[in-house]
Write a protein that binds this DNA or RNA. Structure first.
Lengths: 153, 153
DNA sequence: CTAATTTCAGTTTAACTGATATCA
DNA sequence: CTGATATCAGTTTAACTGAAATTA
């Protein structure tokens, strides 16, 4: 009645794109998270530092939009980064509702350090793929993400 | 000091494989979840039904291993499926610690219905990719997932 | 007035942990 | 005895929601 007889092919689930994506994202996220944790950092910290370097000075709301982190979590993230001297936060003189968030020198150095950590993590994850395959994977994912209008792409 | 001047390229984050994967997996998961919810089902339900059809009769622990669902969540999932008449659950006469879980006729019919829902969801997600690109994406993800030994691939 | 921003306090949900009872 | 199984109760964590205070 169950006519299995294979023992290797797992059926629909094993080839389902959404499932493969979830699995791959899970592995990649674990590797990245462990790497950052070993360096005493968090995914949120890297996202904020890298976004500040890429886009320059920003308000907290702007950082939330660009990183995809919730405004609420941004508060705690910036408190941690500020406490470590990696960013400066001061009220915007032009619009006193806003905080102006700036990357400090220490923040820039920390970002470079974490860039190394991240590069290693990506490499560890992508190790079974050739350079061409890695590029193609990134391209395909980019097409999907852009098509579905992920806000903070 | 911030030398941005582009306004389009988002820096490191936008091209980072782990981030693209998380974003793509998020979109895909949302589309799949909404499709299943509209059909009155849950991701867990589909996973169990599809695994039962692919591998045949199984114990709850076996289902947990093959689907990746926690043994604990499996209890509630099977209670729901049993209550809807989609699976049968009875004590294994050969090993009375185990429950023998069987797909019923109604379960098989429900699975076919949900297969349609899932196929539509995958198509909606993959719409910007050609057939060749979809196949390549699945292949690349499969290589990654298998290399990293995801238990329930 | 409405709308944007920062902040805090609390909620939701999926995933997981620990403990218990049963049986091989 | 150890080890596997099913079950339940409770925990953890990320992501999110609501509301207050401030300012445009």
């Amino acid at each position: 009645m169950s006519e299995n007889g294979d023992g290797e092919e797992a059926g629909r689930l094993a080839a389902m794109p959404s499932r493969l994506l979830a699995q791959a994202a899970g592995v990649a996220g674990r590797i990245v998270g462990e790497g950052l944790a070993a360096a005493g950092a968090h995914r949120y910290h890297y996202a904020v530092l890298a976004t500040l370097e890429a886009f320059g000075v920003s308000s907290q709301a702007g950082l939330s939009r660009r990183t995809g982190l919730d405004r609420s979590d941004m508060v705690a993230t910036l408190a941690a980064l500020e406490g470590a001297g990696l960013v400066a936060r001061e009220v915007d003189a032009r619009d006193r509702r806003r905080n102006v968030v700036t990357l400090t020198g220490a923040g820039r150095a920390r970002l470079e350090e974490l860039d190394g950590v991240l590069a290693q993590a990506q490499a560890a994850f992508l190790v079974p793929l050739s350079a061409a395959e890695r590029a193609e994977l990134v391209r395909l994912l980019g097409v999907l993400v852009r098509h579905h209008g992920v806000r903070w792409a």
